[in-house]
Computed example of a mutant assay.
Amino acid sequence: MNRHRSYSFLFVLLLSVAARAQDIHFSQFYETPLLRNPSLAGLFTGDYRVQTVFRDQWNSFTDAYRTGSLNAEVKWPVGQTSDYFTTALQVLYDKAGTAALTTTELLPALNYHKSLSDEKPMFLSLGFMGGLVEKTLDLSKVTTNSQFNGTAYDPALPNGETILTPNVHYLDGSIGISFNTSFGPDNANTMYAGFAYHHLNRPKNSFYKNPAIELDPKIVFSGGLKVGVNDYSYFTLYADYSRQGPSIETIGGVLYTYKLGPDPDNYPYSFTIGTMARWNDALIPIVKLEMNSFNLGLSYDINVSRLNTVSNSRGGFELSLSYTGLLNRDHERTTNGKFHDPRF
């Protein structure tokens, strides 16, 4: 019997089980703030931001994962107060396995930033995100042992599976809260900390229409710290801890950024290098180039888990691109001549 043909569907089932236990993740997780916590929307210097990340994982030894994320955020002042709110949209696409298990998410988000200080940027933020998720399976690519006719694989034979539909649709929702502030000389340093609760409605997502199969809620603790070294350089630290059912993920690391140009307050370029680590899974070297309002990042997972005997330490390649800008409006609320709004 040609056994490898029967493994494609098994691989998809394993992917489905993994998807139930743990959400899709990125190594440049700081470039997907809404997937971490909807209350992190709007924590940037500027009025709007667009970010995209593409991930290609484990294709060195199997047809595994290709994932893309796109999010957009716009920050708005609230009347004559020092408060802000952010409107945002998260789009996610993921294709996994030989049978093309595909997930598409369209998730609008809203975040309110309550000012806690008239002296400097300090905000308590509450965010909500929710929308439509679709999962599909290409049954034409599914092969099982039931299609073995005794001598060879026969695609005309039924696969023996009781999948009722290759399409699953459901609504999903998340909520989060975060605190962010600036500190130090001229309030040049910034930090944030937050907590999020994802899949609060425990959506059903079974291809077999099994009501017992549902997404486990996920909790995420997130933090970030940006500290200046001098006028031209600074360190940025990021960390996330998440738990979903029996699965736990801890990821964090540090980036070092150096500004290029004669004026550190209005520099045209900057260069960043650093490393993230996903506990018991991967080391992730990262390089990043900022060109005016554009940021381009590149990372690669060096697998250090038990899977490295198969992957030869090869993991996931990731590319990120973001753009941040200002709208044509008068910023009246400033502190010491600088914008007084949520930032990081």
Rank of each mutant, 00 (worst) to 15 (best):
Y7N: 14
S39W: 06
S242F: 06
E214G: 13
Y197G: 08
P268T: 00
L327N: 09
T45L: 13
Y192T: 13
F11Q: 15
E214W: 11
F148G: 08
L70C: 11
I302F: 11
L307I: 08
A152S: 14
L157R: 14
N180C: 08
P108V: 09
T67E: 01
Y7M: 07
P158L: 02
N336W: 01
P342D: 00
F271Y: 15
V254L: 12
V168K: 07
H198V: 04
D138F: 05
S182M: 03
Y269L: 12
L171M: 06
S270K: 13
K141T: 03
A196M: 02
F54G: 12
S117L: 09
D265A: 12
I175F: 14
L200P: 04
G160F: 04
G337W: 00
V254E: 12
Y65F: 07
K120A: 11
T165I: 02
S69C: 10
Y197Q: 06
E332D: 10
V78E: 05
M276H: 02
I175G: 13
I175L: 15
S6K: 10
N292Y: 11
G223V: 09
L35W: 02
L110A: 15
T250Y: 08
N230G: 01
K338E: 07
S82C: 02
L15I: 01
K141G: 06
L116G: 08
L296Q: 00
N205L: 15
M291P: 05
K120L: 03
R202Y: 01
D281Q: 11
N37T: 00
T275I: 13
F195V: 10
Q57M: 03
T324N: 12
W279R: 12
G325K: 11
D172E: 05
Y84Q: 03
F29R: 08
T334V: 05
T190D: 14
P262Y: 07
P121Y: 02
Y170H: 10
V74C: 02
S322H: 12
L327H: 07
F294G: 00
F344V: 03
I251F: 03
V50C: 02
L200R: 14
F128R: 07
T181C: 01
